[in-house]
Write a protein that binds this DNA or RNA. Structure first.
Lengths: 329, 329
DNA sequence: ATGAAAGCGCTAACAG
DNA sequence: CTGTTAGCGCTTTCAT
């Protein structure tokens, strides 16, 4: 991995190494003529300062760890793409760190923290105190987002899940649904508990009993399977409120494609997330939003505020979902 | 960004800095007792060697640049997730680099190459010679994949696009379709030209004329719009061969949901990619595969071969698509 | 305005 | 087996 160094350029340009360095850093002034000359020579040689060495001496880094936890749905992929793009627009580079299962998350994050990242943005269903401890020790600010709860010791940007559950379920109640089933997510994930709380509260407001509460991995397949079972049971629901769009689309497929039911007449369906796909004509899904742009925007603001002042108090931003009403409910 | 150093640990453990270093590198032997002691102290303090400093001296890096070009469809998101995971399993870290438009790709890659990455994996529709030149200068091996053509000066892992076009179109011909339209991608992308070539050749074999050739951004919306226009025209096609699953699902929506046509009776539809979504009951899409696992596997093998021997000849792997027949054609 | 020299955190060669 | 020393590529005083 032989790589051109500043020294090589210095030699070629007939200047000192420090001159080359100064040519590449705005702060230190340099005679315009020499700077231009150095930059020209450097460009010809294809030289670029080594970000690692620079980082080492400046004690700062443009790297941001983006930690993908135990959540890998369609929504999440979209989310991380937006996040990477937003980081890059702000001069940061996203170092992707993935952990299949929750147990490994702290360990994986630990390994990744060998790189001197400016911060770590973590999206995971539950939060490992060890991970927080690790990054504390490394002085890496941690920002949690997405499925997790509000954390002591880390900044958070999260969705008001309960509000989504309330909005979605109240809408089904208003439609006149009486037997509303909850298709939930992974146990312990705030995205699940929050939305379920909203669901339960909305039912209570209306004096209704929950029809049933089930669990998925937030995904299409399990959403479809559960809906199929429930709809074929002795006491089928007349509506589903679903913890994710993916699960809702699964339920929609079970109802329309597999059982030839009419949606929303026979069974009404509300999802959560409002992914672009929700608006496709074949789905036309009513859903509570989980607005990626807004969340990413808040993450960027939180990140910048945190980097500007490492010692300030923990920040917590809550994004409010909205209900987008379409044909499915 | 004050961070614990090996020196701090050395002081605390009453040993030298090199002892600490040796404790963290398997190669250099160390008395088991001292090693254990050092590791214990380090763990208590939460110390981790700085990967940047290590990289600087070892002249090698665990970073791999993953360059996301002007392609951001559902398939691509999936692809990059698999790629990051595969890299991490092999002890590499994916540094995400995104470029909205093709023009910026070389420039963005250039900036990212300030980080001493072991290699760069690029997935883009077209290839900028400047990007190749840049990475050559930085001695960073470049591996192209996906939409691009086979490149001089870089390793490639790509799909046999033409074969996909042949398989898909021949299948429509066998079904008895006579007016087969091609819904294509972005002009100049090999994913488009290759599949179109296959489409044209299959038609020629059958003595048929192309019904029409149109362009999308490989996406759902433009696929839907184009299909809608064609199906409402004076001379509607009886089949679509589509450059991507996303475009095919758009066409499917236009036919079934918007125009109430029967698929495949009124119009048959074949996609390309075979994303998981293609098998959803509401779609049941016949598609030529673009097998992520196989491509990523080949990328990993190419990467490892390249890193093992930087000077060996360019490698090129071609993955063959298969036709998965479902209900849509 | 520019060069020389020190040092960021680490590892590898060299002593002992 | 372990400590001392040098140096990776860069930026930043401190001189000039």
């Amino acid at each position: 991995m032989k790589r051109l160094t500043g020294k090589d350029v210095a030699r070629a340009a007939g200047v000192s190494a420090s001159a080359v360095s100064r040519a590449f850093t705005a702060e230190n002034r340099l005679n315009k003529a020499t700077r231009d000359h150095i930059l020209k020579v450097a460009a010809e040689m294809g030289y670029r300062p080594n970000a690692l060495a620079r980082s080492l001496i400046k004690q700062e880094s443009d790297l941001v760890a983006v930690v993908v936890g135990n959540t890998d749905g369609i929504y999440d992929k979209d989310f991380f793409n937006h996040l990477s793009t937003a980081l890059q627009k702000r001069g940061k580079w996203a170092l992707q760190i993935r952990s299949e299962d929750q147990e490994n998350l702290a360990e994986t994050l630990g390994k990744a923290l060998m790189y001197p990242v400016a911060a770590a943005i973590v999206r995971a269903g539950t939060v490992d105190p060890q991970a927080i401890e690790n990054s504390k020790q490394m002085n890496v600010p941690l920002i949690y987002t997405g499925l997790g709860p509000v954390i002591k010791g880390a900044d958070c940007v999260w969705l008001n899940y309960k509000s989504g559950g309330l909005l979605g379920t109240r809408h089904l109640v208003r439609r006149g649904c009486k037997k509303i089933a909850y298709i939930g997510g992974i146990k312990g994930f705030t995205a699940d508990t929050g939305r379920r709380d909203g669901y339960l509260e909305a039912l209570q407001e209306a004096g209704l009993q929950p029809h049933s509460i089930s669990q998925t991995k937030f995904d299409f397949e399990s959403g479809m399977q559960i809906a199929l079972n429930l709809l074929q049971s002795d006491n089928p629901p007349d509506a589903f409120y679903c913890v994710s769009d993916a699960a809702a689309l699964g339920a929609l497929n079970a109802a329309k494609s597999l059982l030839n039911l009419r949606v929303p007449e026979d069974v009404a369906i509300v999802g959560s997330d409002n992914m672009p796909m929700a608006s496709w004509p074949c789905f036309d899904l009513t859903a509570a939003t989980n607005p990626i742009d807004e969340i990413v925007q808040n993450l960027m603001e939180t990140l910048e505020a945190r980097l500007a002042n490492l010692d300030q108090q923990e920040m917590s931003v809550v994004v409010e979902p909205q209900l987008v009403i379409r044909g499915s409910a």
